[in-house]
């Protein structure tokens, strides 16, 4: 519930409390039910953010210009080799003569450390950064139309289920740990989280 909605609800309750006749007709505000929904919603969010913050997703949801590499063979997470960046044009598709698609084709290389692949390989826009962001920060971003591509939560759920590049996270090729669960699991978790009021954890 937004702050404005809470204020309006409080105002309505105050007005109705001062007018006992009308108060009998007012919808009951069940604080216990809201608390249960929030608890359920936060549990769903924990599963969702485990996916979004997983390296298969977060390594290309970065605030700066550099995609990341990580995995059991890399030690600490590192910058993508070859000075790869989102591109001087800000597109996320790389630079002139060295686009993401120069190496990342529509399917994974079968070779260990070969380039992973999915259609339209590119970096997410910088405002959609997840890498090294907290659960609360990612949650706020996901719900903010200014930073989520003007998507509704329903749009986001469908995007996770249907976009081939997102789906790559669960089929990342040899030597890479997939994101937890599946695209379908995550789609359903987002739906349940939205139904529970899409609560975010405290920052």
């Amino acid at each position: 519930m937004t702050v404005l909605a809470r204020l309006l609800t409080a105002a309505v309750i105050a007005v109705l409390a001062a007018s006992p006749v009308h108060a009998q007709d007012a919808p009951a505000v069940d604080d216990d039910a809201i608390a249960v929904d929030r608890e359920k919603g936060l549990a769903e969010w924990d599963g969702i953010v485990a996916v979004l913050s997983h390296p298969r997703c977060a390594n290309c949801h970065v605030e700066d210009a550099y995609p990341r590499w990580s995995g059991p063979h890399y030690g600490a997470t590192r910058l993508h080799a070859f000075n790869i960046t989102r591109g001087e044009d800000g597109s996320g598709f790389g630079n002139a003569a060295l686009r993401c698609a120069s190496c990342h084709f529509s399917s994974n290389s079968s070779k260990l450390h070969g380039p992973p692949g999915a259609p339209l390989w590119h970096l997410a826009p910088a405002e959609m950064a997840w890498w090294q962001k907290s659960s609360a920060e990612i949650c706020a971003q996901i719900k903010d139309p200014e930073r989520n591509g003007a998507r509704t939560l329903e749009d986001i759920a469908a995007h996770v289920r249907d976009d081939p590049l997102v789906g790559w996270g669960w089929n990342p090729g040899p030597g890479r740990e997939p994101a937890p669960g599946s695209a379908e699991d995550t789609f359903r978790a987002i739906e349940r989280w939205a139904a529970a009021g899409a609560p975010c954890p405290a920052g």
Partner: peptide, 25 residues
């Protein structure tokens, strides 16, 4: 594994690493 560029060719004008691109694609 597309990590050195020695195999680079153009496909419709775009440089690609031909050692990693399946010919069927």
């Amino acid at each position: 594994i597309a990590a050195c560029g020695a195999c680079t060719v153009l496909v419709d004008g775009t440089p690609v690493r031909s050692c990693a691109l399946p010919v069927g694609m």
